[in-house]
Design a protein around this nucleic acid. Structure first.
Length: 825
DNA sequence: GGTCCTGCGTTACC
DNA sequence: ACCGGTAACGCAGGACC
């Protein structure tokens, strides 16, 4: 039998001690297909240099006799072969050791401790990764499969228990030259519960949204809404949920924070009610991986927690201040969650019940729409990294870089480096920090006619141009014809021979350029997503080499990369100044300068001149021209503050960096006031209007005409309350919330305002004393906001450095009297 | 009780 | 723990007078 097949979910099982891949996907008619396949399972023993053939034969004989007994399973070596391979770019002889079961690779590798063996590698790869490498059945790519239909009790009945349309034993696998269309069946879900702690309260309702499919399942309250389905009790409702999922037969079941809440909650309630949450295509329950972060896996259905993917793939592009469903949906979809104030279900009136149903449904609607929006990125990530959707939807960028490397190393005949072990990770984490980017000390002031240059993919371009990686790193010993880099404390050396890391990174950068062009020519979500995947890979490659968990960890390469970048940036600044421009700022890969008497055209000619002299793939680019820009002093000291400036371009568009305006831990009033001030000043360079505006705000504040919601301060709780050495206001509030049984989670934004000091919180002269946290109040708590605090700690700090540029002091701001001091008003 | 300094903590920039 | 270093700045908390 022959079918066209697109693999979606990858799994494996053991039968008679051997490993089999079990892949769920679709054929072109949309039928759900299960493919059973197997592949060679092996790892490598790399020989020391100069071991003779006779010795190798002896070692092979010994290896071939290895038998390991483990968990009622006997694993053995099937055969060995000798190959010429590369390891970290160097030619090596290696013994390829084929074993019966990949799970015992490690145990068998442990038995191979002969002195002729230098390293053992690739016993730490996951089976699915190995399988994709060996059989080249790549995720979300259409393949032509030749195979035999399985329908009886083959493989001990595993096949028979599967709820699929067709089950095939794969024989031949070939990628289709012309790829077909594929649109996954996606089902979004969301649960509402009576308690926030997993499994503690009942699940009140469950919503499900798919294509032309909307349901809210409940057992507590009837509704006239047609999408609400009633059940007798919680157990029946959850069983109804399972039935709907099975009937809809989704490729992807998607939730928002569902790894951490919805799925474990469903599982816990099923357990409490004494039945199985048999969502899997083989009727298995979801499997939760242990570890810091839970992940819920359902066999045969790809369970995706969209929050995790949004974190790695989108958060750098999002301006929303949290990654809550509401914030993300309103930014990406322009749609919000419905308003609903949480109440225990026993306290809801009929009206509130109806609202609750709508609210619950809307959460799934948003999750569904977000998943449709994210689908091109999910698909391209999976295709580029060649790992299943389940994994890439949860992986961080370091894993993505590593997976890309792993799946492309065979082109270099490379044996894959091992993952660091726990003690090695510990050591790596202890290492000293290396020096990073150069940041120019700006002179405070208002500048006109500014030009910004930036280096395109600066660090990646340096890694490629200078060949900086673990496999080119030669240590601290000087050799002939090597690259010497001074990284501060010592000199390090790199080979000039091209090697796989920089070669691959070069490809990544080229592909990014190519797909970017393709997207410009033919804009569609998939070309955009592909271009973006390569962009993110290139950007993460530098961080990867300095990341303690990386297989190809090389902090010396990272240190050399930043050392070279500092050098080029400083040299370029010198050159620009020498040409009678004036550099006013620079951070990492960007340089800002005044055009002075030069024209824009001349600046572009200068750019060309600089580019002619840049080596390799390094490239300086025009970022933009700006009409005006402002740099301010640091709050302490008279120097210009780094990473804090505001620009306005020729279309009057503001670009604000680092200012309180863009910091979420300042109250809205100070952020908005500062924003207005920057706008007024940059638009026509006139500070008078801004001054009037600020005075108006101060007046309103003093008269208490500013509503409390503009004075709420939001700070994220970053760790468990007990772990704080210094208790800031947000920690005090978090404690208070916990006492009031409000849900407290790490990562939450804690909201509070500062209230007026009570009698015991004042000094004799009536000034506030003691820690500020003691005056922090929950937004709904009683008490007046403290005008003095907001003036001194929120409004003035946000604007005084800006006015200082115009020689307007903070004293004048408050009431115009010159002799008054900052705090007196 | 006030001032100064240092370290913690958060959030930004690139 | 889940990519790196650089930097600003509020607040807590202790030293010092």
């Amino acid at each position: 039998m022959e079918i066209n097949f697109i693999p979606i979910d990858y799994d494996y099982f053991d039968f008679n001690g051997r490993n089999y891949a079990k892949i769920i996907g679709r054929d072109e008619k949309g039928r759900e297909v299960c493919l059973i396949d197997e592949c060679d399972v092996y790892f490598w023993a790399i020989l020391h240099e100069g071991v003779n053939d006779k010795k190798i034969m002896k070692i092979r004989e010994k290896i071939e006799k290895i038998v390991v007994e483990k968990e009622a399973r006997t694993s053995r070596v099937l055969k060995t072969e000798v190959h010429d391979k590369n390891y970290l770019g160097k030619k090596v002889k290696a013994i390829k050791i084929f074993v019966t079961n990949f799970k015992d690779s490690h145990a068998i590798a442990d038995e191979i401790d002969f002195k002729e063996i230098n390293k053992r590698r690739e016993y730490d790869l996951g089976f699915i990764t190995k399988y994709v490498l060996e059989r080249k059945l790549k995720p979300l790519i259409w393949h032509k499969i030749e195979g035999e239909i399985l329908n009886n009790n083959e493989f001990g009945g595993i096949v028979n228990s599967l709820d699929v349309d067709l089950c095939l034993r794969a024989e031949k696998i070939n990628e289709l030259e012309k790829q077909l269309e594929f649109k996954p069946r996606i089902l979004a879900y969301d649960v509402e519960t009576d308690d926030f702690e997993i499994g503690k309260g009942q699940i009140v309702m469950i919503s499900l949204v798919g294509e032309n499919f909307k349901k809210v399942l409940s057992f507590k309250k009837n509704s006239k809404k047609t999408y609400v389905e009633m059940f007798k009790d919680e157990e029946e409702m959850i069983k109804g949920f399972i039935k709907h999922v099975k009937k809809y037969s989704p490729d992807i079941l998607v939730g928002y924070f569902s790894d951490g809440f919805d799925l474990p909650y469903l599982r816990a309630r099923a357990e409490k009610n004494g039945f199985k949450l048999n969502l899997g295509l083989d009727n298995s329950q979801p499997v939760f991986s242990r570890g810091a972060m839970l992940t819920g896996k359902i066999r045969g259905i790809v369970h995706i927690d969209l929050l995790k993917f949004i974190k790695t793939a989108y958060s750098q592009y999002l301006t929303s201040e949290t990654l809550s469903l509401n914030d993300v949906a309103s930014e990406l979809l322009g749609e919000k969650k419905l308003d609903f104030e949480f109440k225990h279900s026993s306290k809801l009136n009929p009206d509130e019940w109806e609202k609750y149903f709508e609210y619950n449904l809307q959460d799934s609607v948003l999750t569904y729409k977000l998943s449709e929006k994210a689908w091109p990125d999910l698909m391209e990530f999976s295709k580029v990294m060649q790992e299943p959707l389940f994994d890439i939807s949860r992986d961080g960028m370091s894993s993505n870089v590593e997976n890309y490397l792993i799946h492309n190393l065979s082109r270099f005949n490379e044996i894959i480096e091992k993952r660091p072990l726990a003690d090695e990770i510990g050591e790596r984490r202890m290492r000293e920090r290396y020096e990073g980017a150069f940041v120019f000390q700006p002179k405070p002031g208002l500048y006109e006619n500014i030009c910004f240059f930036d280096f395109t993919s600066y660090w990646p371009s340096i890694i490629v141009t200078f060949n900086l990686s673990k496999s080119s790193f030669l240590g601290s010993e000087k050799e002939k014809n090597t690259l010497e880099i001074d990284i501060g404390k010592k000199k390090v050396y790199f080979s000039k021979e091209p090697e796989f890391f920089s070669e691959m990174l070069k490809e990544i950068i080229e592909k990014r350029k190519q797909y970017k062009k393709e997207y410009a020519k033919n804009p569609n979500p998939f070309t955009k997503a592909r271009s973006n995947a390569f962009k993110l890979l290139a950007n993460a490659s530098y961080g990867y080499q300095g990341f303690f968990g990386a297989r190809y960890y090389c902090p010396e390469a990272s240190a050399a990369t930043t050392a070279i970048s500092r050098d080029f940036t400083k040299k370029t600044i010198e050159l620009i100044n020498k040409r009678d421009y004036e550099v006013i700022y620079s951070d990492t890969d960007s340089i800002a300068f005044k055009l002075n008497k030069h024209s824009k055209k001349e600046a572009l000619e200068l750019l060309e001149e600089i580019n002619k002299n840049l080596p390799g793939i390094m490239e300086l680019d025009l970022e933009d021209f700006y009409k005006r820009g402002i740099w301010v002093t640091k709050r302490t000291g008279e120097f210009g503050a780094k990473k804090k400036y505001a620009l306005i371009d020729e279309k009057e568009k503001l670009k604000i960096r680092g200012f309180e305006t863009v910091r979420r831990d300042w109250c809205d009033l100070s952020r908005e006031t500062q924003n207005k001030v920057l706008q007024d000043i940059l638009k026509d360079g006139n500070e008078k209007k801004a001054l009037t505006y600020v005075k108006e705000v101060i007046k309103k504040l003093k008269e208490r005409k500013i509503p409390l919601n503009e004075l709420i301060i939001r700070t994220q709780l970053k760790k468990p309350i007990e772990e704080y050495k210094a208790e800031g206001p947000h920690v005090t509030i978090a404690k208070k919330m916990k006492e009031q049984k409000m849900p407290i989670d790490i990562g939450m934004l804690i909201e509070y305002f500062i209230s007026e000091p009570e009698k015991h919180q004042k000094t004799k002269n009536g000034k506030a004393k003691g820690p500020i946290r003691e005056r922090a109040r929950l937004p709904e708590e009683k008490g007046e906001y403290d005008v003095e605090y907001y003036l001194k700690n929120q409004i003035l700090p946000a604007v005084e450095n800006i006015f200082e540029v115009f020689n307007v002091s903070a004293k004048e701001l408050v009431d115009g009297k010159k002799q008054m001091r900052l705090g007196d008003f």
